[in-house]
């Protein structure tokens, strides 16, 4: 099971600039669904790539679902050459995205995010409207039910 607290501690402790999207952001907004991984959009600056690589290095990041033994190293060069990575780590599954479907890179998403405390850590997750936007942009059939719930959350918030 993904240890969300320790993953966030690793990222925040490593001063990584990131915004949480996906299921954890949905839960933070009030979704009743459960999610098994953490999805983040990270800032694509050289400094932040180095911080991201260093923060995850102790936790054995590896390509999720790939056969063992591949010559894969989640280092600065790998991150620079790639963009989005679906990783397994010793702390659980982590999707590390340079850009979310819908055009959301860090610079686009940060102004559309909220800073809140999770596990005593100051983290940012996308605001509800942006989360709905990203889910709609992704256009996956499995997201339709989630979008319905997120839009219902928005309605309930507006009622209160």
């Amino acid at each position: 099971m993904t240890d969300f607290q320790r993953l966030l501690e690793a990222l925040v402790g490593g001063n990584v600039e990131f915004v949480i999207i996906g299921g954890v952001a949905a839960v933070a907004h009030g979704s009743a669904h459960v999610t098994v991984d953490l999805d983040i959009v990270y800032r694509r600056t050289p400094e932040n790539l180095a911080r991201l690589a260093a923060a995850l290095a102790p936790h054995a990041p590896y390509l999720r679902g790939a056969p063992p033994g591949l010559p894969f190293a989640f280092d600065v060069e790998t991150i620079r050459r790639g963009l989005n990575f679906t990783l397994s780590t010793a702390l659980g599954d982590l999707d590390v995205l340079g850009e979310a479907t819908g055009g959301g890179n860090y610079d686009a998403l940060r102004p559309r995010s909220e800073s809140r405390q999770l596990y005593g850590l100051e983290v940012r997750f996308v605001d509800l409207d942006t989360l709905i936007h990203l889910k709609r942009a992704a256009g996956r059939p499995k997201d339709l039910e989630r979008i319905a719930e997120l839009e219902a959350i928005k309605q309930e918030r507006n009622r209160s």
């Binding site: 340079g98 850009e99 959301g104 890179n105 610079d107 686009a108 102004p111 559309r112 936007h133």
Partner: peptide
């Protein structure tokens, strides 16, 4: 690197 600030 993508510097775009707008969503699709």
């Amino acid at each position: 690197m993508n510097e775009g600030r707008e969503l699709e």
